[in-house]
Amino acid sequence: MTEQPKLACRNIWKLYGPDAESYLEKHPDPTLEDIRAAGLIPAVRDANIDIRDGEIFVIMGLSGSGKSTLVRCLSRLIEPTAGALEFHGQDLRAMSEREMIEIRRHKLGMVFQHFALLPHLTVLQNVAFPLTVQGQKKAAAEMRAREVINLVGLEGRETYYPRELSGGQQQRVGIARSLAVEPELWFLDEPFSALDPLIRREMQDEFLRLQGMLKKTIVFITHDFDEAIRLADRIAIMKDGAVIQVATPEELVLHPATDYVEEFTRHIPRAKVMSVGAIMERGAQGSGAGISQTAKIADIAAQVVAAQTPLAVADDRGQIVGAITREAVISVLVEQGT
């Protein structure tokens, strides 16, 4: 491994029920059936993930698969039953309460499914809240709060109370609030699941726009595979508390680790996740200034199909590395139909 991950989680377990800890000590590697037979609830089983600097890491799974529990273990909102956590190489689980408070105040941010806004505070006060908890002066905190409120497009609503806002606007407040302290690591637990589908898309775009500007390290939870595909750099798929595959959207679709994963990916249009790089002819000649090799096929399909000749493909630095043919694109598009 070349680069140290921002947050590493090693063999994290979370079992609910009486004496879960001693059970796990006695049975170091129980199966799902063992745990259930012992009358415990397996919320997270032996999870291993690395969150890399600057990536959007999506945790995907059906409801009850343990996503929220896992992400709460990562921030020690819930104490894991077993396992290790490393934040910047520091042992997070060894930190004292006081140290955790400091880390949470300055380095972590979290957005919640049902927004978790404080009903008795205005938008401005809600967003300034984490800053005032740190002890910042009201004026400074409110100035910073106004900045992030503008960032999420809520200027003019500062004096509103949460219940006077729509769901989408409330979640913008939630996002602004979690960004106010400029967290290094940003957790979002199904932030858009409570919103209508149309608003959800709009919020996803907004989220990508923000991330384009802020370049945070993000752990994003969703039960919606389409959302995962749209947003993720990498996706972890969870089932019954276990992480069954961690991969880029493209790898997931092309090489699902299990039937379960394949089931999810089946309805996903290949063109949406496959990048130009996957089907280009390396070293071949093409016309044009060069399509980015990381572009999704769906986005460039019209262009390629309309062109008479193969189009040139460039890498990140603009170097031409190959070409993409009309036939290759069409075969990806057609494969979808079957």
Binding site: S75, I101, R104, L108, H114, H120
Partner: peptide, 23 residues
């Protein structure tokens, strides 16, 4: 979720009580 928010914001026990829970 609001309790989780309080912890994630780094509230001390006292802040948790008087600034989150009671209001």
């Amino acid at each position: 979720e609001i309790k989780d928010f309080g912890v994630m914001t780094g509230c001390t026990t006292r802040q948790m009580t008087w600034r989150i829970l009671v209001p």
